[in-house]
Design a protein around this nucleic acid. Sequence first.
DNA 1: ATATTTAGTTTTGACTCAGAACTATAAAGT
DNA 2: ACTTTATAGTTCTGAGTCAAAACTAAATAT
Lengths: 352, 352
Amino acid sequence: MARRLQLSPGSLSRLTAPLIAGGLLREVGEHNDGRVGRPTRLLDMDVDAKHFVGMKLRGNEIIAARTNLRGEIQQHRSVQIHDRSPKTVIGQIADLAKQVSEGLDIDGLGIGIGGLIRDREYVVDARFLGWSDLPLARLVGEATGIPTLVDNDLVAFTEYEHWFGEGREDDRFAVVTLGVGTGFGLVANGAIVTGDDYGIGLVGHWPLDPTGPLCFAGHRGCATSVLNSDAIARHVAEALNRPVDFEGALDLAADGNPAARRVIDDAGRGLGRLLAAICNLTLPQRIIIAGEGVRLAYIASEAIHAGIAADRDPRATTPPIVLGTKDNVDWCRGAAVLAIQAYVHGKLPVVG
Amino acid sequence: MARRLQLSPGSLSRLTAPLIAGGLLREVGEHNDGRVGRPTRLLDMDVDAKHFVGMKLRGNEIIAARTNLRGEIQQHRSVQIHDRSPKTVIGQIADLAKQVSEGLDIDGLGIGIGGLIRDREYVVDARFLGWSDLPLARLVGEATGIPTLVDNDLVAFTEYEHWFGEGREDDRFAVVTLGVGTGFGLVANGAIVTGDDYGIGLVGHWPLDPTGPLCFAGHRGCATSVLNSDAIARHVAEALNRPVDFEGALDLAADGNPAARRVIDDAGRGLGRLLAAICNLTLPQRIIIAGEGVRLAYIASEAIHAGIAADRDPRATTPPIVLGTKDNVDWCRGAAVLAIQAYVHGKLPVVG
DNA sequence: ATATTTAGTTTTGACTCAGAACTATAAAGT
DNA sequence: ACTTTATAGTTCTGAGTCAAAACTAAATAT
């Protein structure tokens, strides 16, 4: 279905011709829904015409994936970080890029990092790696020969959802990630909302429960103390007086263990209040919850909706809340989208 | 200073010629900063070439103002509402429009209402007037002969700040209004953020203080119970056991009365926490505080900053907070901007 | 077999833009 | 006082884009 969005058929021919010649678009058969007349020639992007690599840097691990033009993962691999010095890590990045490319030509490399990044190039501050003021994109570009872009991992993840994920139809949506930290990303008026502070972790100590436990920084019932997977595991372990990890805590809650249920529901209610705040301030058309700890949102669904209801006007409509996977490779798709966007916009940096 | 923003001088000539001929642009002398060469011919908008009227509808009052193309007020007037039937109010609107126009040709009329408005035309729900599903813009257009647009009062106010006010340089800013209700407006990525729920009063019951008083709806320490001017006056009056109004309460706090100071500081701290939430979620470049109750923000400045600090990462930078006036006529400028925008975009509705 | 309907391409004319050529107006040099 | 130089601003020109029209292609309907 060659839908001509606001474009005359003449212009469409003119514009698609070079893309077909260049191998980016391809005719994929014909379509005729029983009506009279010549059938339409279906055009589809040849999403495998180009390849990109996305990587997520964590404190002790690099995850890498090769994707096509749509951010779909074709190959992935990870490696442990033992030495956090930029030189060593950049060497590991270059090796990993070579491994996941499998000899294919890579058009761009995107890297997502939890921290403060400037201009999709400089790591201003990434404390979990001990890095600051590092021109990472240029260094990796030189080491790999691939045009490279860097950004905050949540920016990258949000861009993925915006271009190819659950938010692709929306002009306005929010992303919340659960795990060892709580992340937030926002798209409004068709573009991601960022600022100089982005990457500090602005919702990490959001007050969720005035009667909740204290976090290390002294906030009562903040996201870190109520919602983080470590905190949840710890609270359940303390209640049961035996070691429990995050997944174990969720299992117990799902099986009806009252102590675990209470901790999980407190977390769910807190998350709901955060979602209510997001809805009240940013009026999203959709909320996407993802991250390693997303299973919490599946198990505490009722508590989440109770938390939302507590802080919203009863007349307000709550947008659909979609839950993603806990797969860590998803972060790589986000990182790859940084490169895909630069490719599409003709903004890929020149290497060498 | 004819700055050609991304435009060749040739195009600039072509584009400005019809605007000068149409009377919208005007040459206002020459300028030569001592350098060699022909001096630049300065162009300025003839802001008085067109006239607009903005009105704010409240429960018992209509405020109207005539403005120029820049939303600057040239004349204003108000009238009491005794009968809230649409027919009567529309008649008053028409009278008021005629009075403030003073015989001048009015190019557009904007109306701001606290409530749910659709398509800048329909009043879906304005409970303080008891109106619902009223095609107000069309009816007023017919009654006055002036192309008319309606929108939520906060949308209108935010658009004013966006086009001509404190936010005109920013791509991203927030507006908070204080008074008998708490209002919130957001501009992100260069455009206002609204949704179907806008107009319900989404921050009205925002939780500000877990130990605060209860509001009528049963929320502890919500914006209605902590921040509303009525609530503040009541709390001070109860503490002093004598009648006090909002301005009186502020006067007492400014003079150092401990009970008043405590109520005002609680309100300021609560407002600060709301501002912190806004900053954490929307990363504004500026926060504008206005409304009838804005004096609270002047008097409780320290408490506000303490409230912000409580809920923000210490590394985060807080944007400039600018305080507006408590003048009710400001709302009319917002309403007029609705018409100015429609005029500039060529979207003024046809009347008759 | 011909007509009709829908899809898609090529042609055409209107329009926009940047750059070049040109005109206007100042200060600086002789 | 006249010429030169620098800057501002207009008009002209050629490239590019677009929608509409004319035309070609491929299906069903009669």
